[in-house]
Design a protein around this nucleic acid. Sequence first.
DNA 1: ATACAGTCTACAGCGACTGTAGGGGCAAGT
DNA 2: ACTTGCCCCTACAGTCGCTGTAGACTGTAT
Lengths: 146, 146
Amino acid sequence: MKPMTIGRLSSAAKVKVTTIRYYESIGLMGTPDRSASGQRLYGSVDVERLSFVRHARELGFSMDAIKDLIGLQTEPDQDCSAVDTIAQKQLAEVQKRLAQLEALERELKRMIENCRGGKVGGCQVMAAINDHSECETDKHERLKPL
Amino acid sequence: MKPMTIGRLSSAAKVKVTTIRYYESIGLMGTPDRSASGQRLYGSVDVERLSFVRHARELGFSMDAIKDLIGLQTEPDQDCSAVDTIAQKQLAEVQKRLAQLEALERELKRMIENCRGGKVGGCQVMAAINDHSECETDKHERLKPL
DNA sequence: ATACAGTCTACAGCGACTGTAGGGGCAAGT
DNA sequence: ACTTGCCCCTACAGTCGCTGTAGACTGTAT
C-alpha cells in the first residue's frame, strides 16, 4: 500500500490536518517520512494510531493518559493492570462530573420553575443565583467549563 | 462601613485575589477606588456582585452569559424573559452534556467490565478504544474536556 | 498554461484563569 | 526605629487542546 498525504490521513481518521500536525508537535504521532518536496507521508498504521487517539479523546482521556496508553500499547507483553487503572481513573472522573452536572440540572430547573415571568427586579432566577445560602453546588469544587 | 482590601473581598466572596483582578481586567467588576498607595478598595456591593459571579460560574454559565445577567440586573424594570432565556439555554447545555457523559460512563464501564486481566496485547480496554465501529460516542460531537 | 486545492512553516489567539518575578505597603512585636 | 512577615502592586508567561492566520510552495486537473 502506498503512503498517503496528511489530508488523506485526516479524512481516514477523522482528525483535522492541523490537529495531526499539533499531535506530531507534542510527540503523540512520531515524525513521519517526507516526500522529496517535504510533504508528510503516512501509512495505514498511522490511521489506526490516530483513530485510537481520537476515540480516546472522545472518551475524555487527557493527552497525558493517551500518551501512557500508547506507550503501553507498544509493549503488548506487559501486564494489563496499568491500562485498567487508567480507565478506572477516567470512569471515576466521569462519574464525579456526572454527579456535579446532575446537581446543576436540579438547581437550574428549580430556578426556572420558580420564574413566573414579570420584571427582572423580582425575578426568581436572579434571586436564586444571588442567594446561594442553601445551594447544593456550593459544596462542590469549582466546575470545569461545560 | 469602611472599605476592604482585595484580600478581604477575596475571602468574603470566596474568589481568589488573582481572579478578582482578572475579572476587573475583562470588565466584569468595574474599576474600584484606590487607596493613597494604590491598593484597591471595595465595599459590600462588590462582595455581592462577586458572589453572584462565583455562583453563576458554579452553575456553569459562561462569562458572556454572566456579563449579560449583570447587565440585566442593573435594569430591574426590564422584562424577566431575557434572564429566563439565558437560564433555559444553560439548562439545555447541561442536559446535553449529561447525555454525553452518561454514554461515556456506559462505554467505560463496558470496557472495564470486559477486562479480565492478562497482558496488554489481549486487553479488552485497549481493544475497545481501538474498535470504535459500534461505539455510541462516535455519534456525538467532540466532547469538551472533563 | 492556468487555475485551484492541498501542503508547508511559524506564530498568534481562544477561555478562564494560574503562576512567576520583582517590587512596595502595612501592622505588630522587640 | 527596626525587623518580621504577610499583603498588595504590575506585567507578563504558561496552562490545555487545539484553531486560525499569513504567506509561500506543490500537485493535479482541465
